[in-house]
């Protein structure tokens, strides 16, 4: 176990090193910080002096070592736009993204496990086939489009009048298929509750929680089909296995077999895939936050790109890289713990 841990940690450091080199190369090659800092009218001689003073004329390696040293202290310099340390800017935007991801994960876990298990237990049932069909369609809808459709339906409202509205039943049916809208769709609202530091939460009350609904549902809609299909496929495979047949032959109740014996082994691959999907989830938060103007890291990153705010872009890359590396390492470790058949000391499978 210790050897495995050390190996994983070494691997994690290696990846972080690569990310830091890439991030630094971006910082080094992109844009001219001097131009960002001073106006058009400053003469070239003063620019050159400033460049020398900031160490921008040093060799690449010297600059990288300085960058890495500062990075160890979470010091990535000042954001051009906010004129604050980039880590502060990130910390201010981080809670919004984390809350969105938390709400989404909750939705995914609560929905994908029951639906996936049900579709595996009753693969031919009408409802199960309906779920499979919906998930095929769901995979084909980009997350920003789901978000836009949700805004149209629940925030703006849709009016359909296919039935004659003069008659009572007609207007009743028209009302039934139309929506009023009115759900809040942009931003986090003003009812945030302060927790500590830069963390303001949407979870504390209904007034603020409702702002989280549409973004979280859109974000979940893109991940759900994948997890439902995965859980269903794994569960189907497990249900074919010898030990489940043996349990049946022993006369153990079906409920116990499904939810105790089979589900346990179904969840193993789900953990690994779930860990890998965190990367995808972060990418999708960028899209979701853009549509809903959710003031998280993704929106901040896009704004930073628009404004060529290089230090902020670099800090975002490093932070997101760190999140990926930590989660991937954790997933590997958890997988090693829950599945003792994984050879911990040998080459990771």
């Amino acid at each position: 176990m210790i050897a495995f841990l050390i190996k994983r940690l070494f691997h994690a450091f290696l990846v972080m090193f690569v990310i830091s080199v890439i991030s630094f190369a971006i910082q080094d090659n992109l844009g001219d910080p001097i131009q960002q800092m001073v106006g058009q009218s400053v003469p070239e001689s003063e620019r050159e002096a400033l460049r020398e003073e900031l160490g921008l004329n040093d060799p690449f390696l010297v600059q990288y070592v300085r960058f890495a040293k500062n990075a160890m202290h979470f010091d990535f310099g000042y954001s051009y736009f906010y004129n604050q340390p980039t880590t502060e800017v990130i910390l201010r935007h981080l809670p919004a993204t984390l809350e969105l991801v938390a709400a989404t994960t909750l939705l995914i876990v609560l929905l994908s496990v029951p639906i996936g298990v049900y579709s595996a237990i009753r693969p031919r049932a009408l409802l199960a086939r309906f779920f499979m069909g919906v998930s095929t369609v769901g995979i084909s809808i980009p997350v920003f489009l789901t978000a836009i459709v949700l805004i149209q339906i629940f925030a703006i409202g849709v009016t359909f009048t296919p039935f004659p509205s003069e008659t009572g039943w007609g207007s009743w049916l028209n009302d039934l298929i139309s929506t009023d809208g009115g759900m809040p769709a942009y931003g986090r609202g003003h009812e945030l509750t302060h927790v500590f530091g830069t963390w303001y939460t949407n979870f504390a009350g209904w007034d603020s929680l409702i702002y989280l609904v549409l973004p979280a549902v859109s974000l979940a809609s893109i991940m759900l089909p994948l997890f439902i299909r995965l859980i269903r496929a794994e569960m189907l495979e497990v249900l074919q296995s010898e030990y489940v047949k043996f349990a049946k032959a022993k006369g153990i109740g079906m409920r116990r077999i499904y939810f105790l014996h089979a589900l346990k082994n179904t969840m193993l691959p789900v953990i690994t895939v779930g860990g890998v999907q965190i990367g995808t989830l972060v990418a999708y938060t960028i899209l979701t936050e853009t549509v809903f103007q959710w003031p998280g890291m993704g929106l901040m990153f896009l704004d930073a790109i628009e404004r060529s705010d290089i230090p902020l872009i670099v800090t975002y890359l490093m932070v997101v890289g760190l999140i990926f590396v930590i989660t991937n390492t954790l997933v590997d470790l958890i997988y090693g713990l829950v599945n003792p058949t994984v050879k911990l000391t040998g080459k990771p499978a």
Binding site: T280, S308, L317
Partner: peptide
């Protein structure tokens, strides 16, 4: 892959654009 293809595409796109 652990970064997910879309994330890599967004980052590469951002770098190219900058």
């Amino acid at each position: 892959l652990s970064f997910s293809t879309l994330m890599v595409a967004i980052i590469v796109g951002a770098v190219f654009k900058a």
